[in-house]
Design a protein around this nucleic acid. Sequence first.
RNA 1: GCCCCCAUCGUCCAGCGGCCGAGGACGCCGCCCUUUCAAGGCGGUAACACGGGUUCGAAUCCCGUUGGGGGUGCCA
Length: 484
Amino acid sequence: MPDPGDQSRRGMNAVTAAPRVRFAPSPTGYFHVGGARTALYNWLFVRRLGGSFVLRIEDTDRERSDESWTSGILSALEWLGIDWDEGPYRQSERRELYEQAAERLVRSGRLYACDCSRADLESRHPGNPTPGYDGHCRDRALTPGPGRALRFRTPDAGTTVVHDLVRGDVEFANAAIEDFVVVKSNGDPLFVLAVVVDDLDMGISHVIRAEEHLPTTPKAILLWNALADVPTPTFAHLPVLVNDKRQKLSKRRDRVAVEDYRALGYLPEAMRNYLALLGWSPADGREVLSLDELVEEFRLEQVNHSPAFFDEKRLQHFNGLYLRALPLSELRERAAPFLASPVAPWPDDAFDQAAFDALAPLVQERVATLGEVPALVEFLFATPFEPDDEAFAKLVAGDALAPVVLGQARDAFRSCEWVAANLKELLAGIAVAVDRKLAKAQAPVRVATMGRAAGLPLFESLVVLGRDRTLERIEAALARLGPG
RNA sequence: GCCCCCAUCGUCCAGCGGCCGAGGACGCCGCCCUUUCAAGGCGGUAACACGGGUUCGAAUCCCGUUGGGGGUGCCA
């Protein structure tokens, strides 16, 4: 009998044939960036080699899985531009395959029935915090049936080696691998069985997934070799993504849903670029790479070994780069959803595309995400217009010269030619008159007309705002200051 | 507890025995530019966890320690 851990046949597959990979998320929560990176690495790997990307939904846990999570995963993948060649397959629809495999393994003696409850184990090993299964039912020859789980009879000796493209060979002593459950006592197949049966059935050549799966891989290999006489897939275990406490990203604890970033106005190409660089970098050190360049340069063998922190600041940097590189027409299209209901802080009929377009170039170089766009142009569309209280208090009400500046600006703006250079020149003159730098003199005018202490360049903005509204707002500010 | 993985600036990466008195990027700080804010330019800050080996020579190889992480009894 061959050593079940024997891997000598490995390497015969997928060397010349096109690789087949699978991305296999479980629909038990929103899709987070760690899953997105795993999907991306699978995708990059297989695209250059002309292979196939299979999408498989691992929903064997009926308690925790939900179809709504599945649709979220699919739309997030689409948004990122990660397309699939097959699927999505659902493990919940493939149950028969797992049952057949389990039957075969029972017949060949690799699986045995077990009726030990958790309490039984505890009573046999009181106080033992975490022992593995003790093999109690191994030789009891129980008949499989309801109320009895199916366990895999693991070898007592020898070693199972995981050949990993990222980590090299990782060895596990078979003696340390307990007889693990493969089918629950209620008949449901467990993840480890379903995955192996599917990978086998789908002809998967490379299993590229997060490092958290590495410890269960020897079990999968044992199972695989018990089921079929074909080489196991090649494995690649990617370093996990961690939070600021260096713990694995968790759906419950950490707010890192791909959908959230989309809603905040991150571009998929920026997200992709950033994600690709989380755990890998091209040989030449470039950091901004197009999709084609990523496909061309990406190598699993170059993937880092240590966990990476998802740094939103850095993502933001990449997003800004991509945003600024967009042609204006494209920026306009991408920004559109953020300028309309339900996102925009103004009614749809208050929006004026031409006004936005006029300021778009100035907007473009000031935002890191599309979500920041509305705030910059809100002064054009907000109805009614209300200056920010804090800014008004500080830069208008709190400035003894503000009434003078505002009053003179109103007078000067009343009849001049309405172009930016003119407005600037007029206000510069007022600045001189009140003995101030232009930078400080423009502050009260900015707050009165644009509502905020900082934002787009003042004069260009006023040109688009128009003379009437500009004068109205200055009057309103003066009125608010009251007489004297 | 046991098994496994990992270990270079705060963060993400480069480094695969001499080119390293450690390089790039983000962040942070300063300066310049400037109608605010950005963007941009320039400069600065800051790391090989520790201890043993191996070697003429170690961030790079080996061992150990420490630290971090992951997995672990019918989740995936």
